[in-house]
Design a protein around this nucleic acid. Structure first.
Lengths: 281, 281
DNA sequence: GGCAATATGAAATAATAATTCCAATCCATA
DNA sequence: TATGGATTGGAATTATTATTTCATATTGCC
């Protein structure tokens, strides 16, 4: 009966967790230590690890053998592979990309710059987004009869994707475009039972600000996505999000804004479905 | 005269690069190997590393001593610290996000899902994009009198951002929208001196395919962004890019496509500027 | 071209670390 | 509570690995 020796860290981890109950006390002790301090196992010596875990070196070896390895050394390989295989850190990646984008020649450098900008933006928003704001915004939008989507220029692509997604989800919406010059009239139709998603970044398109002001004065609640608390949009908004998009070569990444916009859209869709289900029940 | 011993990897790297010129041949050889294969230094034994680098173990130790360490072991510590300190890997981050997105409750989970999808897409395209294709596409577009931008539905936001950016860069362009139903006529104006950026993902919008076919038959070169080599768009295109966008909750991330679109746009802008400069000189 | 200084290779040696072994202890079961 | 088996601790042993040493080769300099 030869054991199946775990060759990668995840399998090893699973195996350990699986057998946890049946392990003798000291072995269990080192098993817990190993999963909690995998880096120590990767770098330490049998003696140093054993000391840190409060057991004898021989116990460490018995642990390894019980898992099917022929000794501590082969167990350690698995922990080392884990460190090796994991890609270079997020920051290193970004730094490398940015370095290539700045120093590098050719068009690949430009591409890398945009990738770096997008990654940075995603990273930032993932850290800074306030869950409560997200909930508030979704509640507000879910109650709306019609969702108006307001954005010009560089923010317009986001608005058009929101409109597309809302349409797919069968949520009534109205994209306020400038093409026909009928924006004032469109805006006039909105009532306090509706809601607006407004998106604008510095330098704020005057039309967006004007329309947001008008619509806010009609009592229509606004969810704003903008780039600072000084943004005029933030003044009019019931809920607003600060999204810091990195830029490259003068063009802002839209990836963070897009992600937020999609989360709002799909969130509203889910909330509506839940509401319907509740009403039925 | 006591040396300043580098204690972190970055300092060490700088020190090595700084002295590179003045190092003896074999020492330089191992120095280069160390910077190229830092993971091997972190985990290997003096003998194994020396063998991989094609030198004697003693050379490795001399290298360490020349840097101010008292032996290979202390040099190795620096390489180990580097692995320890670097943040959790990119993949681990993504996995965590995806886990939260799948298991998690509430709308934050949705948001995390979109962030994860966007990150994955950026990661993928960064790995797979072919530099030569990028150069080809940019050359082709830079020569065009007018750049037509063709995309419907979920790809439309990308097209609108391209149009916006081209406009900013004062590059003549025409967005082929469906609003007025004049697409056939618009397409008819294009000549072989122009070019098209066409974007379409499965399920391909029939209108996009039809217009792409028509325009290709007029001899207008097409740069396509699509999702597989089986895409009908790829048939008509002079240059085409395969972009695998991850999706979440049924909506595709656009971040990779956006990054590529921006790189094309800005690349064309640069190429035009260069051409103008050359003509002046 | 010859000399000194420096660099390199290879093997011997010292250090360190993993593993084994055995006695002591613990624990479950009758 | 006695007994057998499993578990553990600690030291002895073996293995691996870093380091040192010294002979040889190379390089720069006069």
């Amino acid at each position: 009966m030869d054991e199946q020796v775990p060759r990668d860290f995840e399998t090893l981890r699973a195996t350990i967790l699986d057998r946890r109950e049946s392990l003798p006390k000291r072995i269990a002790q080192i098993a817990a230590y190993a999963l909690d301090n995998p880096d120590d196992i990767a770098f330490g010596t049998a003696a140093s690890i054993a000391a840190s875990a409060g057991v004898q070196p021989s116990t460490l070896i018995r642990f390894a053998q019980q898992l099917g390895f022929d000794g501590f050394t082969s167990l350690q390989q698995v922990f080392r592979e884990r460190l090796r295989e994991r890609n270079s850190s997020y920051d290193e990646r970004l730094q490398a990309l940015r370095a290539k984008a700045e120093g590098g020649a050719g068009h690949r450098a430009i591409f890398d710059g945009f990738i770096a900008a997008a990654s940075t933006s995603l990273n930032d928003i993932s850290r800074t987004l306030d869950d409560a704001h997200l909930e508030d915004a979704i509640s507000l939008l879910a109650k709306a009869q019609t969702i108006y989507v307001l954005a010009k220029r560089r923010s317009y692509p986001v608005a058009s994707y929101i409109a597309y997604a809302l349409g797919k989800l069968k949520i009534r919406n109205q994209l306020i475009e400038s093409a026909a010059g009928l924006n004032a009239e469109m805006v006039g139709f909105a009532t306090p039972a509706d809601a607006v998603i407004a998106i604008s970044f510095s330098p704020y398109a005057p039309a967006t600000i004007e329309e947001a002001r008008a619509i806010a004065e009609q009592g229509v609640p606004i969810v704003a996505i903008t780039d600072s608390s000084f943004s005029p949009l933030a003044q009019f908004a019931r809920v607003w999000f600060e999204v810091a998009e990195a830029d490259f070569a003068g063009f802002r990444s839209l990836s963070a804004t897009m992600a937020l916009a999609m989360a709002l859209t799909v969130g509203v869709g889910e909330k509506r479905r839940d509401a319907v289900r509740k009403r039925k029940a």
